[in-house]
Amino acid sequence: MKAAVIVFPGSNCDRDLMVALEQSAGAAPTMVWHRETTLPDVDLIAVPGGFSYGDYLRSGAMAARSPIMKAVVEDARRGVAVLGVCNGFQILTESGLLPGVLMRNRDLRYVCRDVFLRVEQNDTPFSNKYAQGQVVKIPIAHHDGNFFIDSDGHRQLEDEGRIAFRYCDSAGLVDNRSNPNGSLANIAGVLDPSRRILGMMPHPERLSDPNLGGNDGRALFDSILNALS
């Protein structure tokens, strides 16, 4: 499996993503600077977390209009899988590859802690190594992670099974108390209609090695390898 990781000024999870992808795929991804206008021939494009362009205007707004994103959108439309984590999710919504928007957290605070997620869909290139309904521990670290979409858009996501992960408690209960940022319907990750584009606020790359205090993120990268190689 060949992967590319996009690097923007202000990205800070690009290397973590690279390490996690290399650990699962056995080959290092190509790091692609935001000023590039073409991508290498890859199976997966990963858009990392961080604070691209200092979150100016809106989180992800500047990065979504940077030169490389034209190539990302073109490749995505051709069927190349795309994973956006945290700021990467914000960039994918801003670029129109995923629906909805990530607003300021409900409590206006930057939240940085481990949370539990329920795997809502395991028939995707990103989650086939998880069990349906499995509860996993993955960290979040964001200020703008409050997912919002209008009611028609929400219904469509529910009806088409495009909500990949929801925030829950350790027993898998999805409620307001287990919602760290006010996201609509506890949505932590969404898929595009083809299910080959995933955006998620939690950071699977940060818990994908037991030495980091947990390994629940590893299966996401193993899923990608399983699906795309």
Partner: peptide, 9 residues
């Protein structure tokens, strides 16, 4: 339409 506003919200 293209940058300054996010017309979703």
């Amino acid at each position: 339409e293209r940058l300054l506003a996010n017309t979703v919200i």
